[in-house]
Design a protein around this nucleic acid. Structure first.
Length: 274
DNA sequence: AGAGATACCTGGGAGC
DNA sequence: TGCTCCCAGGTATCTC
């Protein structure tokens, strides 16, 4: 599944291939996704040139020369490829953008949790209003302990849901939240508003370190993202907490606990994480 | 209001 | 072996 590090890698690769290309046709094979793909057919896309490709959160923004943009979210099974037309269409490829160099930008999504949508920009380089709700970028300097501490004061939920909330910080999913909170020594069950400033500092630092490691490891996974199974990157082997219920904590040897928070599997060390 | 639960979707694995 | 059931994931939406 594309996490933030992978979306970063994918977006950079798309930028190299797509900027200054013109979209000459659009094919929608099965419109049913998180939102229907059908509005794309009527949008001002065909005949437009691509002037920039950038990332915001887990979204890729493809900016066109008309102040329009195509935003893509990969859900949990979204894959993009740029290929020649000689490659047969795969079962779960739902959308093709034909380019003026003969290549095709193909969007595949097995579980149909992805989003591909046309939207308008107020100015070139802007973030679409559809994405204005997104919180801090985890690797930027404005994501810091003070920011997280201030946000946590107004939250009555638990730490895990707080960190996974895209309005707080983007791109930290179920796997990375488990690793980050373990590294920071904070229990996912704690009330967010009970966090101290120094604990917020630790959580922020852990998120940054882990995402950077994942970029280093995930980049190599994504370099061959033509293999449909990109879910098992190198980083999967480095996970110390996620999926390890019943195993021994690498720090203290205690048995790793699991429970469900928000319907999602949650893993933590009851001894190390307070 | 806001937090927790649920729906969305498919493939894969477990259990019978 | 083949069937059914459950689980994974992010996000929108419903419910209490």
């Amino acid at each position: 599944m594309p996490e933030l590090p992978e979306v970063e890698t994918i977006t950079n690769a798309l930028k190299k291939s797509l900027v200054s290309r013109k979209i000459i046709n659009l094919e929608i094979f099965s419109p049913k996704m998180r939102e229907p793909l059908t509005p794309l057919a009527d949008a001002d896309i065909v005949g437009r040139s691509i002037i920039d490709v950038r990332r915001r959160g887990r979204y890729t923004i493809i900016e066109l020369d008309n102040l329009g943009a195509i935003i893509m979210h990969y859900g949990m099974s979204g894959v993009v490829r740029i290929e020649g037309s000689e490659i047969p269409k795969r079962k779960h490829e739902h959308l093709f953008f034909h380019l003026d160099d003969g290549k095709i930008l193909k969007f595949e999504c097995t579980r149909r949790f992805s989003l591909v949508k046309y939207c308008r920009l107020e100015q070139s380089g802007a973030t679409p209003t559809e994405l204005a709700f997104l919180g801090a970028e985890p690797l930027n300097d404005d994501f810091n302990g003070e920011y997280l501490y201030a946000k946590s004061r107004k939250t009555s939920g638990n730490v895990k849901n707080f960190i996974m909330n895209n309005e707080v910080v983007v791109g930290v999913g179920n796997i990375y939240v488990a690793e980050s909170l373990f590294s920071a020594g904070v229990s996912p069950l704690r009330q967010a508003k009970s966090l101290s400033l120094s604990e917020c500092d630790k959580i922020v630092e852990s998120i940054k370190v882990i995402l950077k490691k994942a970029i280093a490891a995930g980049g190599s996974t994504i370099s061959d993202y033509r293999h449909v199974d990109g879910s098992e990157g190198k980083f999967a082997r480095e996970l110390q907490m996620y999926g390890r219920a019943g195993e021994k904590c690498v720090k203290c040897g205690a048995v790793i606990a699991s429970c469900r928070i928000g319907g999602r599997s949650t893993f933590y060390c009851p001894k190390c994480q307070k």
